[in-house]
C-alpha cells in the first residue's frame, strides 16, 4: 500500500508509533566525534523528521540496537543465574538496503550457525521492524552493488524522503493503522545499480591456500594499527567475547556479559596459557578479508560484506578494504595468467 505524506503527516506517523515502537534512525550527534568540534552520525531515537540525518552515512551501523555493544547475559545471585528482562517494545529501524542485508548476514550467524539459536540475539531481533530508506544514489565510499547488497525485498515500510513529501510503501499490515488517514499514492522504491566505487570479488574456489601466504598482506602489517574501528563500524561483524565480573561485595555474586570483539584487536585469539594466533596485523587483515568475502560465503552461500564502506570511512590509517579486495583479485588474475 502506497502513501504520500507531508512532513507534518510523517511527524504524526512517528508520534502515533511511539506507544508501540521505539523508532531508530541515523541522526546527528553534534560534538560527538573523536576529534574536537566534530560531529558524528549515529543511530538514535527518532521522534520527528527533523531528527533524521539522511545526507550523511552513519559512523556506526544500526546493529548495536539489537546486538548491544555490551550486554548482560545473566547475573549470578544466590548462585543461580538470572537472565535480565528486556524492554519488549518493538523496534523500527530506519536503514538503507545495505544495512538491511547486513542484518540478514548477522541472522545467519546468530540464528543458523551451530546447533542453537542465540537466545539474546533472537529475543531482540524478533522485535525489529525494517523501515527501509530508499537509497538510489549511495555515497562515494559505498560498493554495495559489487556485493549484491544494493537491493532487498525485506522491509516492513519503505520510504522515499523528498524535500516536501515522503512517499511510503507499506508491506506489513501492522503499520497500516498508523497511516489510515494519510493520502494514498502508489509508490515503488528504487535501488542503486551502480556505485562510483567498484569491487571485484573473487569467486569461491579461486582463492587458494597460496593467497593466504601471499605477500599482499604484508602491506597491512606495516599500515594497520589494530584499533578495531573497521570491526566496530561494520554492520556484519558479529564476534563477541564472554566476560565475567564480580558483582557487589559478596564474592559469590557475579555478572556475565558479552561484548563486541574484533579480529583486528589484540587479544582476539589469545588462549589461556599464552598462545596467540595471527600476531601480525597483515594476518588479521587477511583473516577479516577472507571472512567477509570468501569463508562466510562458503558456509552460507552469500557474501558477508555488504559494501556499506564504513570500514573505509573510519580507518585512521586510510586503509581501504575495497582496494584490498581488488588487490586480492588482481593477484588471483595474475596467478591465472602465469
Amino acid at each position: 500500500m502506497g502513501y504520500q505524506l507531508s512532513r507534518e503527516q510523517f511527524d504524526r506517523f512517528l508520534d502515533r508509533l511511539q506507544d508501540d515502537y521505539r523508532v531508530f534512525g541515523p541522526a546527528l550527534d553534534s560534538d560527538k566525534g573523536a576529534f574536537s568540534d566534530t560531529d558524528r552520525i549515529t543511530y538514535k531515537n527518532i521522534r520527528r523528521l527533523d531528527d533524521l540525518e539522511l545526507n550523511r552515512k552513519s559512523y556506526f551501523s544500526p546493529k548495536e540496537i539489537f546486538f548491544p555493544i555490551r550486554e548482560t547475559l545473566f547475573r549470578f545471585c544466590e548462585g543461580e543465574p538470572t537472565v535480565p528482562q528486556i524492554d519488549d517494545k518493538k523496534i523500527a529501524i530506519l536503514l538503507r538496503p545495505c544495512d538491511s542485508n547486513a542484518i540478514d548476514r548477522l541472522d545467519a550467524i546468530f540464528l543458523e550457525n551451530g546447533p542453537f539459536e542465540d537466545f539474546y540475539y533472537k529475543r531482540r531481533r524478533e522485535n525489529v521492524r525494517f523501515f527501509l530508506i530508499e537509497c538510489a544514489t549511495g555515497f562515494d565510499s559505498c560498493w554495495c552493488v559489487s556485493m549484491n547488497a544494493n537491493t532487498t525485498k525485506r522491509w516492513d515500510v519503505a520510504f522515499r524522503f523528498g524535500e516536501d513529501e515522503i512517499l511510503v510503501d507499506v508491506k506489513s499490515e501492522e503499520f497500516l493503522p498508523y497511516l489510515d488517514d494519510c493520502p494514498q499514492k502508489p509508490f515503488e522504491i528504487r535501488f542503486i545499480y551502480e556505485n562510483t566505487k567498484k569491487v571485484r570479488v573473487p569467486e569461491v574456489g579461486e582463492v587458494t591456500l597460496d593467497h593466504f601466504a601471499h605477500e599482499l598482506w604484508n602491506e597491512y602489517t606495516a599500515r594497520c594499527i589494530a584499533c578495531g574501528r573497521c570491526n566496530t563500524s561494520c554492520p556484519t561483524c558479529s564476534c563477541f567475547t564472554v566476560l565475567d565480573a564480580p558483582l557487589g561485595a559478596e564474592k559469590k555474586m557475579g555478572e556475565r556479559w558479552r561484548a563486541w570483539a574484533g579480529c583486528h584487536i589484540d587479544g582476539f585469539t589469545d588462549m589461556a596459557g599464552g598462545h596467540t594466533f595471527r600476531q601480525s596485523r597483515g594476518e588479521r587483515m587477511r583473516f577479516k578479508t577472507m571472512h567477509k568475502i570468501n569463508d562466510y560465503r562458503k558456509r552460507f552461500g552469500k557474501h558477508q560484506c555488504v559494501g556499506c564502506g564504513r570500514c573505509d570511512d573510519v580507518c585512521p590509517q586510510y586503509i581501504s578494504f575495497a582496494r584490498c579486495i581488488n588487490t586480492l583479485s588482481d593477484c588471483i588474475e595474475e596467478g591465472k595468467r602465469k
Binding site: 550467524i109 551451530g114 542465540d118 540475539y121 567475547t241 564472554v242 588462549m271 569463508d295 562458503k298
Partner: peptide
C-alpha cells in the same frame, strides 16, 4: 586444535579458521 572459544556455540567467532568453526 586448541582455540579460544568464548561461546562454544558457533557465534562468538574466536575459534573460526576459514569457513570452519573449531567449536562446532
Amino acid at each position: 586444535l586448541e582455540r579460544k572459544m568464548s561461546c562454544g556455540l558457533g557465534k562468538c567467532g574466536h575459534c573460526k579458521i576459514g569457513e570452519t568453526y573449531v567449536c562446532l
